[in-house]
Structure formats: C-alpha cells, structure tokens
Design a protein around this nucleic acid. Structure first.
Lengths: 369, 369
DNA sequence: CAGACTTCGATCAAGGTCGATCACGAACGA
DNA sequence: TCGTTCGTGATCGACCTTGATCGAAGTCTG
C-alpha cells in the first residue's frame, strides 16, 4: 500500500491519531503497519513522550497519564497528617465567634491546627490576610468568608479560585461559574429558608400582613430578601412591606425610624415583623414597650439571628442560623479534602436554621372578618 | 470484552476509575476482567497504594481512607447503638447499584445495618415498600429516592415528611415547602452543574453550536435541562438544539431518530452533542462510525453518566455523577442525625460531578469562517 | 478460639521489550 | 561533486513485565 515511505511527522501524526482513537498503541503493530523497524517507532514514541503528548510504556504508548509519573516525593512526615488550616472571617465580634469556636472544636477533635485571621467586610483586607497566610506557607487549606459585595465580584471569585491551596467558603457562595477547573466548595446556612420559616410560622398562627426589616449592608440580606420573596409568593402575601434600615440602639435617629415603621404598620394593618438581627429586634421591642404597643398581642416579632433573643423581655421568637454546625462542617469538609488525595468530588452543604418559638410571636389580637 | 492485553498503565487507569466510581475493587474480579493473574492485580494495587492513590485492603483496594491507617487520635465511636437504616431505591440495575454499594460500605464502616428495598419508578410501589419497612419496626431511619414525577407530588412529599422516622432523600429534593415542621434532609448530585461542565468544556475547546439529547422520563432530565438553559444563557449559545428521545440500541427505530438528529446537526452547523446516559451516546457513536462521521473531528460527544463510557471506542468524554459519594454521604448524614439526638439542624448536601475528559471531545475540525 | 478457607507476597523463571552502539543511505548546501 | 546532517536499521545484553508456586498471614464461621 504505502508506495512511498512516510515522513517522520506523518508517522507521528498517525500514531497520535491511533492513540487518541484506541487509547494505546503497540510498538510491534505500528512497526508492521508503517513498514519500519520497531526501533524507529520507539524513537517516535520517545519524541512524543518528551512533549507530553503521550505516555511511553513498556511495549508501546498510551494516552498521557499521571500514573506513570514517578511517585510523588512524599518524604515528608509519613504519618501524623497534622494539617494546618487557615481561616479568615470578616468579623470577630459579631456572628462569627460562634462559627469560629465550633470550627476550633472540630479542628481539635480531628487533630488539625486552625490558624485564625480576622478581616473586615472589605475585599482588599481579605486579600491581604489571605495572602499573608499563603505566603507563610504554613497552611494546607483555607476556610474563607470573603466579602463578595463590591464591584469586582468576578475578580475576587477568580482570585479565590486560583489560590494554590484548597478553599472552602464559609457562609459564602461563588456566584455562577468560576473559571477555575475545580469548583469551589462551600458550607453555608440556608438563610433564605430560615426567613421562610419565620414567615410561615407567622402565617400559620394567623398573620396576614407581615413586614420585614433588613439591616443595611449585611451579606446575608440578599438571602433574606430571597426567602422573603419566595415565602410571600407562595403564601400570597403582599411582599412590599420591607424596610431596609438598621434600627439598633446605637444607630443615630433610630427612634424616628422605628416610629415611622410602626406608623406604616398601623396604616397597612401589618400585625407582625421579621427583623434582621437581635439588637434591632430588641430595639423595636423596647420602643414598643415605651409606647404602649403590646408584644405580641399588638405586634408579633420574629428576630433573625438568635444571639441574645432569649434574654429579651418578652423572650423573642427567633430564627437561629446554624453557626456552630457551619463552622464544624467547614473544618470537616476541608479535612476530608486534604486527606482525600485531591480526587474527591467537591461538595456544597446547606445547613438549615432552626426556628426558636418563644413569646414574641402569637396570633394577632383580633382576627379579621 | 477482553480484546488484547492492556498495558500496565491502562489497567491501573481503569482500576483507579473503578475505585473512584464504586469506592472499592476486588482483586478477583479485576483479574478476571483484565484476564491477568491475581498477582499482577496485586502488584498494580501495591504500586498505586505506594502513591497514596488508593488504600490496599485484604482482598482488594478502596479509596484512600484514614480508617485503614494508624489512626492518630480518632478513637472509634463509643459503641454506636447499631442502628438499622432502611433504603428504598427505584432501580437495582441502573445508576443505583453504585450508590447502594457505597452506602453499604459506609454503613459497614460506621457499624450500622442497611436494609435495602428495590422499588420502581412509581409512587405507589414506593409507598408500599416504605410502609413495609416502617411496619416491620426494624428501621430507625430511611434513605429514600421516591418518584416525585407523578401528579400527586405534594401529597407524596407530605407523606414522606410525615413518616415516623427520620428521612434523608437520596438524589431527590422535596420541591418547595413541606407542611411538616422538620425540614427533610437530602443528598444529591448537582446534575445541573454537571451538564454545565459539559457545555463549558465544549465551548472552551471551540464549539459554538452544541446540541443536547435527553432521555425521556428520567428524573434527572429536569436538572439537566436546567443546567443546559443556564449554560446556554451564560455563554450566549443557542439553547434550542434539544432532542428529547431515547436513542439507545434497544429503542425501536433508534436508527431513524439518530439519522434525523445528525441531519439536524448538519443543517444547523452543530458540531457537538451532550447526550444523557452512556448507552445512548454509544449508540450515536456507533451510528456515526457506520456512516463515516468521524468522532471527534466531525462531531464531538460528551456522555452524561459515566458508567461504561470508558469502554467505548473512542473512549467517551463523560460527566460522572458522584454516585458513590452520594450514597456514602446519605448514610453518614443519617447516622449523624440518629446519633445527634434530634437536636441537630437539617442539612442538604450537593455533590459536584466530575468531567472525565477522554477522546470523544476535541476542537471542531474547522472553525466557522 | 480453633479450624477451614482465602488472600498475600517472596522467589524464581520465561518471554518480550528496550536502547546504546555502530553502520548505512538519502537529502541538503556550498 | 563532496561532506555534513538527518533519519533509519541490525545486534545483543540488560531490563521489564507477568506467571507459577508455596509457605505465611489474614478472615470468617461456628
């Protein structure tokens, strides 16, 4: 058939074709097919293997494979997988202490070390802290809660995805797709469902006009708004009673804001409020007490974020995000990844909040009709 | 199947594949499958174990695991009270064997008993099997994969939610809200993301018109369609090239359907297809081979569901749902719930598929002018 | 806890494969 | 035309891979 002997390049082209088609080639077969000596084929294979286009094996060649690579230089401590995990959280005095302490306990239980860095709700500071941890070369993995609210969300996401160590996001989620090949893992509370639980609870005990008070600028606000919209749509409630203002005691002018809020409630017949974060809820409760609005008879309250809700008077019904479980699960996920040898599929864990029913929620004083 | 003797690397590649997919392999089985002596398989396993790619056990090998190595601090659970967990799956010959066998292994590792029931893709049969398990009063928890496609989705969901034992759904998700107070947990593959991975892969290597072939009536179809829509929207691809037909070899008239499909591809300039389930993909590949359509030069193929994709010729690029991980995680989640004393927040776990890039996907032969 | 059974791995042996070396011929440029 | 360079081929000892054997070690069952 082959009247003219093929050029080396042509032979190699056909050889690669065969490899791609069948997954492997045999020196013997190719020597016959191309009517050249086996030595020539071997030389072709060696050449292609040097370019990493295929893997040379005894007797032939196969597709590029990592298995052929010489055993990874694993002369390091063979036993005692005492990993060190870095953790960067945006705050050390709100929300995160519970998460961190659970992470600490889980790390201790698993025999790994946890290195904590506080950051702020600022991408630049996040990057700085993360870079410091990486450059110290002490951490094998990172638990991160970066701020993804800024303008450069995509850039930050891509940067996080390109870090040289495995990453598990905590209470955060990379939006849409990241260009990195390995999808980033995360663990977070299902805040949207938590808010739905609050609304459903109020709906179930008879409330038909429910309002929502969101803190400004909190990363969880978006989830809460989503849950709010979903719950209102499902239950056929008006979804427009939303206030996006912080009303905690340390906010200047909070009394005026609350007064306005209560006026709106009266005007619209709103009998219940879901309020983001305990201090804001307690601020409202206190204002109500001072102005003769009875909790829960005149206004039912559900706090989102059960830090101190049980200390209020009356004790506040509250949605409790599963902070401890999130912290623990994040550490466990990271340890599983580090111990899994890089071949474990990524996971994404949603942990559901709990609804703690206390005394600030009760059926509305007079049912309509 | 045993055509010609494989090279060592190919054997090891397939062995690792099996380990990752099923969680474990047996020396005996592999020796038969590869038509080599058991000693050879043992040597392969020893070699891979030396690279920490798997863990050698008596009789075979498993995924790298800390359980088998000298546990540093990890003292076994103090005599877990030997729970019995029931598991009801809709099929025992497709997709589910891998999930079940991983669940079995996890159960064994945790010292609990797993009671399996096969059902069919039918709500009535599901209820019958579940009822039987409950009435026997032998199970403390249930892993369920009920069919939620019928008309009475709400009713089935509510019924599952009202069962007297904890439930973890496997590869299923209760749509929207259930009236039961405790939210049902689930573990499932992120099939939508898996499909996105396939589309993004094809897009990245240069394909601009991509088609989708969905099996009819599969519960995962909905997820795949979602991922398809998302990927097409994100990438600005036409999302209309969808065929909802089974084209496996055992479907009467599959040749005509495939012929029509290829005609449509030619007419629309489609250069790549994502196909649900391996057999359908292989059917298409075979038809192409018979009709001179070259894979991957003329048509790139990506299979969804990596059961036998690596046995095709050329080996099929495929998305592999993390079946084993789903099965294992479901058992672990249930045991955590049973051991947690009812006070543990519910969790919902998404496990990400892997994209196994083989030879059926390559850049299109000539880019459009 | 012991006996039956299976699995493991060290050793030796056989056969195929590799590559260093030397040698040859064709293509190429001055 | 000649010399150089490149691609190729023959040879053979070393090397790689696999298999058979069998005592040792592990696992299961009663």
């Amino acid at each position: 058939m082959g009247e003219r002997r093929l050029f080396r390049i042509q032979r190699q082209e056909l050889l690669m074709d065969e490899v791609r088609q069948r997954g492997a080639v045999r020196v013997r077969d190719l020597a016959v097919r191309f009517a050249v000596s086996e030595l020539t084929i071997r030389r072709d294979i060696a050449e292609l293997a040097a370019k990493n286009l295929l893997t040379k094996v005894h007797g032939g060649a196969t597709q590029p494979s990592d298995l052929a690579r010489p055993a990874p230089v694993r002369s390091r401590r063979p036993a005692s997988p005492r990993f060190t995990i870095g953790m960067v959280v945006p705050s050390l005095d709100y929300y995160w202490p519970t998460v961190v302490s659970a992470a600490r306990m889980a790390a201790a239980a698993l025999g790994v070390h946890l290195q904590l860095r506080g950051s702020s709700y600022d991408s630049g500071e996040d990057r700085r802290q993360i870079t410091r941890l990486i450059e110290a070369r002490q951490v094998q993995g990172l638990l991160l809660a970066p701020t993804l609210d800024g303008e450069d969300v995509e850039g930050m996401a891509a940067w996080v995805g390109s870090l040289p160590v495995p990453v598990v996001l905590v209470e955060r989620e990379i939006p849409r797709w990241t260009s990195t090949s390995r999808q980033i893992e995360w663990v977070r509370s299902d805040h949207a469902l938590g808010l739905e639980m609050a609304v459903r609870h109020l709906h179930q005990i008879g409330h038909r006009r429910i309002g929502l008070v969101l803190s400004k600028g909190s990363p969880t606000s978006a989830y809460l708004a989503t849950g709010w919209a979903r719950a209102c749509a499902d239950l056929g409630l008006p979804g427009d009673l939303v206030l996006r203002e912080s009303v905690a005691l340390d906010v200047p002018g909070h009394r005026e804001i609350i007064a306005g809020l209560l006026a709106r409630c009266r005007a619209s017949g709103t009998t219940a409020l879901v309020v983001h974060s305990d201090p804001d809820t307690m601020s409202i409760a206190q204002f109500c007490a001072e102005h003769g609005v009875r909790i829960p008879q005149d206004l039912a309250l559900v706090a989102y974020d059960d830090e101190v809700a049980n200390l209020a008077e009356p004790a506040l019904t509250a949605v409790r995000p599963p902070k401890a479980q999130v912290g623990r699960a994040a550490v466990e996920m990271m340890v599983a990844r580090l111990a899994g040898g890089g071949r474990r599929p990524s996971q994404r864990l949603l942990v559901l909040p709990e609804l703690m029913i206390r005394n600030s929620s009760a059926p509305p004083a007079r049912s309509s009709g």
